[in-house]
Nucleic acid binder design. Structure first.
Lengths: 192, 192
DNA sequence: GATTAAAACCTAATAGCTTTAGGTTTCTCC
DNA sequence: GGAGAAACCTAAAGCTATTAGGTTTTAATC
């Protein structure tokens, strides 16, 4: 029985690719075993269980997304940075729908504390600081931003916009304008 | 073999309750069969397959949510109506997490064309008309509203806000303020 | 009440997935 | 070469979804 020379990273990467090709739910231990030419049970040498594998794909996606955002927002501020950050999310979701779907599941504690998650939060805060929001309001703004972006992408991915007029791109621009407006007119300290 | 006197509606309602109690993924044909004291295969007399059952739970949830929104926004306009509509969503998601989760799946064509879906859209448009948005902008605004609300609730449900400061309620208020601001300052025709 | 047909139920089977326990093989180090 | 660890396999158990065909119940008609 020749060794397939698997490692956790190799298995996780294959799972991510499988998700992008066939959907997040297509990540199964049995499908991956077929892909590597080993028995399903053999994969437990490399991943604790299916749930841990999915957590790992999520963390991989967080890191990749953070990388893309870092590049996208470099040298930009306010509306430009907001657009760049949001577009990075949307491009990622469109290019890697399976990886993006992995981001929608509840995060394990280790993932919340991961380097990748920390980077993503830091980049988002950096972008928002360009709007001179009160320090105490930054978390609220971060949550709104995340909610709007992910909410929009979730609807888009679910086909809620279908092939209906107006095109989703225009709605996306409107959403970004709305966010920009909201951040520029954010109520100051004590006014809420 | 006594008849369990099942009907599609009875099965769908039980599925919805099961989802609220144990999570959306807990809706399985076998769990429902155990609940009714019949064999799993017997349920196929009442539902086409699992997917169709989940579609039906979604449509049930759409109708219930529309009912609640209709009551909540009655007699209100602008910021009040917006708050009432959004709070109806959030209250529903918190009281019926399983039903709410059913709303997140891609809608079947029959669901998109359902009475319930139509009512929900009409109610949302009615609320938005209180902002005097240009007619051509209403769909964009509807999409932004849906995205923000559902995005926020998805994050909340996923535990993204955890038990972290600041409390999610405050962030919710901020989000509603942001939406109100966005709708009041929505770019007029030709400015986007 | 008897008959008929349809619907609701059951049985059996198939196919697929996840995971555990214990056995076998491969690889690395001494 | 030997020892030990890790990676692999086999076997089994448990769960789910679904189909095909058989059995039972029910409602309608005469």
């Amino acid at each position: 029985m020749a060794r397939a020379n698997l490692t956790p990273a190799v298995v996780i990467a294959a799972a991510a690719q499988l998700a992008d090709r066939e959907g997040f739910d297509a990540i199964t231990l049995s499908a991956l075993a077929r892909h590597f030419g080993v028995q399903t049970a053999s994969l437990y040498s490399h991943v604790r269980d299916r749930s841990a594998l999915l957590d790992s794909v999520q963390e991989l996606a967080l890191g990749e997304l953070a990388d893309r955002i870092a590049i996208a927002i470099g040298g930009r501020s306010q509306r430009d940075a907001l657009t760049a950050l949001a577009d990075a999310h949307r491009d990622y979701a469109r290019q890697f729908p399976g990886r993006w779907a992995a981001l929608q599941r509840p995060a394990a504690a280790t993932t919340v504390r991961s380097d990748a998650a920390g980077r993503l939060v830091a980049l988002t805060l950096a972008m928002l600081r360009g709007y001179q929001l009160p320090e105490t309001e930054l978390v609220h703004a971060t949550r709104l931003l995340g909610a709007t972006i992910n909410g929009f992408l979730a609807l888009e991915v679910a086909g809620s916009f279908g092939h209906r007029e107006p095109p989703a791109d225009a709605s996306w621009q409107r959403a970004l304008s709305a966010l920009d407006t909201a951040f520029r007119f954010w109520p100051t300290e004590g006014n809420h």
